[in-house]
Design a binder for these strands. Structure first.
Lengths: 239, 239
DNA sequence: CGCGATTTGTGCCAGCGTTCACAAACGCCT
DNA sequence: AGGCGTTTGTGAACGCTGGCACAAATCGCG
């Protein structure tokens, strides 16, 4: 009946990064009508091995029942609690360009407990534009917006050249979690958490594997017929 | 004068994932007029430690000069070669919704050697729409498009429910590299490379750290004054 | 009530990735 | 030419992560 004590234990960063994936799989299983789920089944749905899954979940306490599995609803609740998703987090999005528009309209945020509460941009031409229920404000208003809207997370979707300056302003306004889509390295004070998502980097990693395969296959595959070159046991792929 | 032999040695996956970041930093340094760069400087610009950088670069061969550093232009060339970026990769984007529009217009792809050569969607209402130089085609045309456009990489930006089916079609058409933005696990045959980017997961990881801090700081910080609570040596943050 | 089938939780180990520390190599200056 | 400061490349230690295998625990059933 406690469940508020356990999570003080240090979770490994790798585990934390996987918890959202378990959560996603659990939501799907719940919607499919499952009340309980075995580590094997949940692992398959999450793209990991069952041993890894059990080890991860054991780090947040023992919420499984031997011989039965995990209670889906309880596990959802526990993971959401550990991730701090019980409290709504307000997000400010800075940089309402191409990518910013898409992020502002992305339904996946709201459905998972995040609310984009503010849109900001440095370009006066964009200030005043309405997207859904929000109006784009000037980035100079950031300190005020962070206060009134209780912003917890800043999402940077500006060009690389502006990202560091925006990060500085976010930090100065008290924001300590930043999601950076700009292709650059941000320097922030101790205690501020930054996560980077660089879309082009993902493509470059894929390019490497393409290139590697090209070298492995001397000259074939120049034309079309890829066909299915074997049954190839389907496997699940993790990020 | 060889340089085509070394990269057969197996690079670790962690190293491959960092090479694009080095490349990005090198381009910036080159534009800033640097001819050579030390591992320390390049590491700072890339958000890693110098030891890690040197170990990574040593895996592609020794292209540094002791006492001097690395030749920027040469290193760019080597990394681009290893990543297979000398050859233009054609990308097909499937799912022209909110996110798809943004990806289609994202300048960061083209500037780094990738070309979005095809846009596809399952919704007949979207087929025919023009974005830049491309017209949205129906996803049923995928086999033909992959052939005529020499598609090497498929980017999935559909809702989660449609992603697996799209992945199946991509694989059937011969595509072996997939970048998946849909929040779900894809099952693909052996030999197909999948990378997942889930925007909401990044926010959830940030939420965890926010939540953790909240527990560490009992009740303060409810109001505004975040101020700068100390000089806090700025530090560089890695992804 | 007891037994067998099932599944969790975890101790152990192997492999990978990171960091440290230093010898070897290089350029520059005298 | 030689010495000195600088920087690379790498061997070794360390910590983390993942996988295996199994004991413990639980349920269902006779």
């Amino acid at each position: 009946m406690d469940g508020v004590v356990a999570e003080f234990r240090a979770l490994s960063e790798a585990t934390v990064a996987r918890l959202p994936e378990y959560l996603r799989a659990l939501h799907m299983l719940a919607q499919a009508g499952h009340d309980t789920v075995s580590s094997e089944a949940l692992a398959n749905a999450s793209g990991v091995t069952s041993a890894k899954l059990r080890k991860d979940l054991s780090q947040l306490g023992s919420y499984g029942t031997r011989g039965v599995g995990y209670d889906v609803a309880l596990l959802v609740e526990q993971i959401e609690h550990v991730l701090g998703l019980t409290k709504r987090r307000n997000v400010a999005l800075i940089g309402i360009g191409n990518l910013g528009h898409a992020l502002a309209g992305y339904a996946g945020f709201a459905s998972r407990g995040f609310r984009i509460s503010a849109l900001l941009d440095a370009d006066p031409a964009r200030v005043g534009e309405r997207l859904g229920e929000l109006t784009v404000r000037h980035v100079d208003d950031l300190p005020e917006v962070v206060g009134t809207e209780r912003i917890a997370i800043g999402v940077i979707a500006t060009p690389a050249g502006a990202a560091q300056e925006v990060a500085n302003r976010l930090v100065a306004a008290g924001v300590r979690s930043i999601l950076n889509f700009a292709p650059c390295v941000l320097t922030v004070p101790e205690g501020v958490e930054v996560r980077n998502v660089d879309l082009a980097i993902e493509l470059q990693i894929l390019s490497f594997h393409e290139h590697r395969r090209e070298r492995a296959e001397p000259a074939s595959r120049a034309g079309l017929p890829p066909a299915s070159d074997g049954p190839g046991a389907p496997r699940v792929v993790r990020s």
